[in-house]
Amino acid sequence: MIRIARASFLALALLTPPCALAQIVIVAGAQSPLPVLTAAQVEQFYLGRAHTLADGVVVTLADLPAGPARDEFYQLLTHKNPSQIRAHWSRMVFTGRALPPQEAGSVAQLRQWLASQPNLIGYMPAAEADAHVRVLLRLP
């Protein structure tokens, strides 16, 4: 019986779509003056098409290391899969169109960066967002 229960649980886990991951939040440092953002604005930033707000304030970007949280973020925001995103950013960077988001080594390092750079935005699983960061947008 226990075996059947285990097998059923495993089958259920395998059948659950991988996209049902945790919510992702776009964040800035707790003291950041940046306003709440729309998904369209954040998409423009993370596809390298814009790096300023309408009032001229420059926004800089941080990425998490390659992994599920990063893939989930780009999929939710841009509807592009990891290989599309890598090809897109290769084109943007090596043609000199845009500088890529700065890659933090971990969520902990991203929090440090956000605390020291008021115009920097990043993203993380919603469960990781603590009092040191301010949520600017939730995905989905």
């Binding site: 290769s90 000199g96 169109r97």
Partner: peptide, 26 residues
């Protein structure tokens, strides 16, 4: 906002993929 200028050596952008012509990965 949205407008930048580049001066120096850039890529010839004549065709759709000209400026990434050698970035084969892309």
């Amino acid at each position: 906002p949205g407008l930048s200028v580049r001066a120096g050596r850039v890529r010839v952008p004549f065709f759709m993929l000209s400026d990434s012509l050698h970035v084969n990965y892309a």
